[in-house]
């Protein structure tokens, strides 16, 4: 077992979700996972699949071939990137004709897809490589007073035949990881439902209704926070929560945290170290008890 990974950031995280990257790097370093930066990068290809499957295949294969040159497996924080790279890795490994076709494109820049690396998402790495026991050991400040809900998002689970991780109809990994922090993970209606983010650019009305439905279900069980592991799901709920409240006349005030932020708190890190300041929905309800500055206030 090697705990050294090439970290693949994708586009959405550096563009809008720095808090996810900051908190992920912090917890991974604490857990002894070594990250190597990609020397060069391009979009994983997913955003182009709807308009050109071939473009997606070539972009993904280019990234995989670059990782192969480094001789390191890929770790992604974005489930969209993970899903795409995994899918293309599988397709090209199994289908010689497609592999040759795509390689004819990569050859122009002296790259070749050989199929020698694996791709994992953060969640999979935490469960399979680090292990739940080690995560429990890393907890110095159990979050026993917290009751939260989880949202896996789609691309970490589906399509099952390409992802092959956890049970898409009843996923357990994120729940286990949440409970490892000492917090309680609540069940609610429609846990595996899509956040709607990919449809925002086409119809934000439909997409916001999906997000609203989710927040309603999370509110019904009195969750103190919603825990996500995807930059797009996070944007969908955190950035839009206020807008959804206004549009549909709802009241939520539910902070949306990245899982690494939750784990980081349990590891004894401060909200400031974990970039809680970047969140749109005020996380104070959660952070009050961890913030030394807050506690010292008269």
């Amino acid at each position: 077992m090697t705990n050294k990974y090439l970290i693949f950031l994708g586009c959405a995280i550096p563009y809008r979700v720095a808090s996810f990257e900051i908190s992920s790097r912090k917890i991974l370093s604490k857990l002894g996972v070594e990250l190597v930066e990609m020397p060069e990068f391009n979009c994983c290809g997913l955003p182009f699949d709807p308009v050109s499957h071939e473009t997606m295949l070539i972009l993904a294969a280019k990234n995989l071939a670059m990782a192969e040159q480094q001789g390191l497996n890929i770790l992604t924080l974005c489930p969209g990137c993970a899903g795409t790279l995994k899918k293309v890795n599988k397709i090209l490994k199994e289908d010689k004709k497609q592999r040759e076709q795509i390689n004819s494109h990569l050859k122009r820049v002296s790259l070749e897809f050989k199929g020698t690396v694996e791709v994992k998402h953060l969640l999979q790495l935490l469960r399979e490589d680090v292990g739940i026991d080690k995560i429990k050991e890393s907890v110095t400040r159990p979050l026993t007073e917290l009751k939260v809900a989880e949202h896996n998002g789609c691309h970490i689970l589906r399509p099952k035949k390409y992802i092959g991780f956890d049970d898409p109809e009843d996923p357990q990994t994120l729940k286990m990881l949440i409970e490892a922090t000492g917090a309680t993970c609540l069940d609610y209606i429609g846990e595996t439902e899509c956040c709607g983010a990919p449809s925002v650019g086409v119809s934000d009305k439909v997409a916001l209704q999906l997000a609203r439905e989710k927040l309603n279900h999370v509110k019904m069980v009195d969750a103190q926070a919603l825990i996500t592991i995807c930059p797009f799901c996070h944007i969908m709920y955190d950035t839009n929560e206020l807008r959804i409240e206004k549009t549909f006349n709802e009241v939520y005030g539910i902070p949306i945290l990245h899982y690494p932020q939750l784990l980081g708190l349990a590891m004894g890190m401060t909200p400031e170290e974990l970039a809680f300041g970047e969140l749109r929905v005020n996380p104070q309800k959660i952070t009050k008890q961890f913030d030394i500055k807050e506690q010292n206030k008269p």
């Binding site: 550096p14 720095a18 930066e37 060069e40 990068f41 391009n42 790259l111």
Partner: peptide, 30 residues
């Protein structure tokens, strides 16, 4: 955002290489 990474303690962003992208995508209809 790219500049802010320094103050956030993040490593520099890997550089995209548009030139190689243009090369590998040549001939794709889209």
């Amino acid at each position: 955002r790219i500049k802010k990474r320094v103050s956030q303690g993040l490593p520099p962003l890997p550089k995209g290489n548009p030139e190689t992208i243009r090369k590998v995508l040549r001939g794709v209809k889209f």
